[in-house]
Amino acid sequence: MIDVVVYFFLLGLVARLVKSDLRLPEALYETLSIYLLLAIGLKGGIELSRQPLAALAPQVAATMALGFAIPFALFPLLRRLRLPAVDAAAIAAHYGSVSVVTFAVATATLARQGIPYESHAALWVAVMEAPGIVAGILLARRALRGEGQRTDWGGLAHDVLFGKSVLLLAGGLVIGAVAGEAGTAPIKAVFVDPFRGVLALFLLELGLVAGGRLGELRRFGPAVLVVGFGVPPLLALAGALVGRALGLTTGGIALLATLAASASYIAAPTAMRIAVPQANAALSIALSLGITFPFNIIVGIPLYLRLAQELSP
């Protein structure tokens, strides 16, 4: 059931655990992540060129609302586990936002099993990145009320909306939509065909990074394990129900479940570090990258696909 790209992640994890000297140059990590974001955006954009944009408005509104609602639903749960309020808010923001690579692995899994899905799904990823972060910052501000801390919303909006993930995803979507299938044919050999190979290489690097976080888990105690393993399936259920209400295909429901279950490790950590410096950044990262990301790509995605099949009319 496990997609071949996931084995590369495991290889990276193992390399890290046996203290191998394997280290991918940072420039390569950067290049691969830019490639993946653009390629995912382009693929969605080509599909967008085929359909009326107005018809997608309910999907955009619902996915954004889902991203915004997740932190508010998660926050009381995290507080019940005795996590400090600022940490709970930061963690909630990570889960409200999304992981593009988790999404990419889910699309690879669907493609391999021949399950169709809405090809414009990249649009959901692009619009789900920011709302969860905003919600997390609002929660943190409520928790820090009285400390007189001001949030530079303008600066933050700039950093999130023009940060590389949203910029490249949205840019790819627009280029794909404007150029269409025929227009993008000349660059297909770079942006479409090698996609899964590049994803495999990127996962190798992420395995190395995630492996480095595992050591920190011991520091944070059992609450972290409860959150890291327990939260994704709950959020996946919420995502799947929203997908079903929107009338998505089985593949689409599985993708939205995956997006809801995924936790950001690029946009959210950077934004929360600036907006809520009091929060323990290592804790959020250990959760999103150390537990939830591996859980989702190894166990979660097949599980969410089953869930989608059960829920599909």
Binding site: E26, Y29, E205, G212, Y265, I266, T270, R273, A281, I285
Partner: peptide, 8 residues
């Protein structure tokens, strides 16, 4: 801090 990805 190893600088291996954005937040690091």
């Amino acid at each position: 801090r190893e600088g291996s990805w954005e937040a690091d």
